[in-house]
Design a protein around this nucleic acid. Structure first.
Length: 276
DNA sequence: AAGGATCTCAACCGCATACCG
DNA sequence: GCGGTATGCGGTTGAGATCCT
């Protein structure tokens, strides 16, 4: 009945992965494809838990991951999606295919949370004044001309670990090797289905996120209202909405934006990593 | 230059859910 | 339907890096 345990936790190595371990893992996945993580430590000889192998692959070794600085556009997307979805990092990551949930979570906790808090306090202290700090921040986030996070960063110096080198190396391997079955790849992480971006956007309901109506942004206290929308969004209510209609999240305000600005870039991502 | 404070982020932990026999 | 495991996810931790005095 059932299955044997994932790992017995005896002789399991913890801590940072070494380049040698990365290579072993990447080589194995190159040959067998991701999935069946329980078999990975056994078949590779890695003294790692299957969970650790999966995490290492999904967060750092799989091809197509963008490292380094988040663009203002990405920041904006994360802020809006966090306001809409709450701390559903995997769901948020599905709209930023090159970023991992862990990366987004870390960035939110270390940068954006502080940033928003600071801007909120600024706007509160200067309510009614000419302060436009938050508005400027959001405008910057929406900058139509900025490169979205869906484009590979040219700045490789930001992340100079062996993981990136291995990841890039693997990209070349993947391109030159025979394609891996779709069902194998989709098992890596259901939320990493890159095609999902446009599908969900086109299926969304309408008129469910009124915080960003232009008339509200332009009202008497634009900063405080907008902040309120983002910072005080009722997650529980929204999650109920999501539960009511899992396949059609109320993302109407995102639909046009993402379709307009990101659709072509998502296609670019898919070209970059054809295995997905 | 040294030492402490703070920041960053890779990795782990534990829970929830999906899946299998 | 039930018991048990595999997988996915979010919260948290802690070592190393960086900044500040």
């Amino acid at each position: 009945m059932g299955r044997p345990p994932c790992c017995d936790k005896v002789g399991i190595k913890k801590g940072p992965w070494t380049p040698e371990e990365d290579i072993v893992l990447v080589s194995y996945i190159q040959q067998h494809g991701p999935g069946n993580w329980r078999a990975v430590p056994t078949n590779t000889g890695l003294l790692r838990c299957s969970k650790s192998c999966r995490l290492r692959w999904t967060n750092y070794l799989r091809p197509g991951i963008k490292r380094g600085n988040f663009t203002p556009h990405e920041e904006g997307m994360i802020i809006h999606l966090q306001a809409l979805l709450g701390n559903k990092w995997a769901a948020i990551a599905s709209y930023l295919p090159q970023r991992t949930d862990n990366d987004i979570k870390n960035y939110w906790n270390t940068h954006l949370k502080k940033k928003i808090k600071k801007l909120q306090s600024e706007s509160e202290s200067q309510m009614g004044s000419n302060s436009k700090a938050y508005h400027q921040f959001m405008s910057k986030s929406y900058d139509q001309n900025s490169n979205s996070g869906l484009v590979l960063s040219e700045n490789s110096s930001v992340y100079a670990s062996s993981a990136e080198n291995i990841s890039r190396l693997l990209e070349g391997w993947m391109r030159s090797s025979s394609p891996i079955k779709d069902n194998n790849m989709s098992s890596v992480n259901g939320n990493r289905d890159f095609g999902k971006v446009s599908t969900e956007c086109t299926n969304g309901n309408s008129g469910s996120f009124e915080c960003y109506r232009a008339d509200q942004i332009q009202n008497e206290f634009p900063i405080s209202n907008e902040l309120e929308c983002i910072l005080s969004f009722d997650h529980s209510v929204n999650e109920q909405k999501l539960k009511m209609d899992n396949n059609n999240p109320p993302l109407s305000f995102l639909e046009k934006w993402m379709l307009d600005e990101s659709a072509s870039q998502v296609e670019g991502v898919m070209e970059l990593s054809p295995i997905y």
